[in-house]
């Protein structure tokens, strides 16, 4: 295909082609190696269907998704509020800054162990441990956004005595959307990763728990099948939620 033809391909096809290449390389490697420790994509797909229809994949996926959603919502709400606060007030920023640095560098494992020991081996501790890992990165992002708020536009609100709620909704938040979207994307990714570790550590259900079980049996096919199910959900969230939201919020750009 000549370069001009490639450029006119629909964006979705271009996105999919990278994945397709990955699959082909993987399949070829699996044939060549022919070892149970490198199952082929086809074998993983069969295993995925099996876990979907006969196993408990959906149950565990559901559990994990619930934890991800809870931790995500908490992290975004707390992170955006504190971030705006720190970005707009020097005093608050000075008060909380060293605490923020400490939190940013607290290893996920430490937060998880402390939560499980102090709160107990329960849902609250698991979700809290995940949220604690994400909150400081959201704060850092949003604080940058809040510092960069356009004073000229805020003055419009002030001069015309626009009510506080309206200022927040129509003047402040739209300026923070790029920062919020970036936080949401990186946040979802980070939360996925940490949730699994925490499930492995202190829960008896969820994908992390299952992966731990498969690990003990060296069942790589099942591990990859679960990972694939997981990746599918991430792609669905990106395509059905984040990208349309992005388009909607950026419609005004000329």
């Amino acid at each position: 295909m000549n370069p001009a033809a490639v450029r006119t391909l629909p964006a979705e096809a271009v996105r999919a082609s990278a994945l397709l290449v990955l699959l082909v390389v993987w399949q070829a490697l699996a044939w060549k190696v022919a070892d149970p420790l490198l199952p082929s994509p086809a074998a993983v797909f069969v295993s995925l269907i099996h876990h979907l229809t006969h196993g408990e994949l959906l149950h565990h996926l559901g559990k994990t998704l619930m934890r991800v959603a809870a931790a995500f919502v908490i992290a975004m709400l707390v992170g955006v509020s504190v971030g705006v606060w720190m970005g707009r007030s020097k005093l608050v920023n000075n008060l909380l800054d060293s605490l923020l640095v400490l939190m940013l560098n607290l290893p996920a494992l430490v937060a998880a162990i402390l939560c499980f020991i102090w709160i107990g081996l329960n849902e609250t501790a698991a979700v809290l441990a995940v949220a604690l890992n994400k909150i400081p990165t959201v704060i850092t992002n949003i604080r940058e956004g809040a510092r960069a708020l356009d004073t000229q536009l805020l003055q419009v609100g002030e001069v015309y005595r626009v009510p506080r709620g309206t200022v927040l909704r129509r003047i402040v938040l739209p300026q923070l959307y790029p920062y919020i979207m970036a936080s949401a994307r990186s946040g979802l990714a980070l939360i996925w990763k940490i949730v699994l570790v925490i499930e492995l550590l202190g829960r008896s259900d969820g994908i992390g728990f299952q992966l731990g079980t498969f690990f003990q049996f060296f069942d790589l096919t099942s591990i990859l099948a679960y990972t694939a199910a997981f990746a599918a959900v991430v792609f669905a969230i990106e395509a059905l939620l984040l990208r349309p939201l992005d388009r909607r919020l950026n419609g005004w750009r000329a």
Binding site: Q152, Q155, V156, V162, R170, I171, W252
Partner: peptide, 24 residues
């Protein structure tokens, strides 16, 4: 009751013209 016209138009780029007027 105050009207203020700044050096730059200072319209909110993410609101259409009608919503910019409704803001105030």
């Amino acid at each position: 009751r105050l009207g203020f016209v700044f050096q730059e138009p200072r319209l909110l780029p993410w609101l259409n013209v009608a919503d910019n007027l409704r803001l105030v």
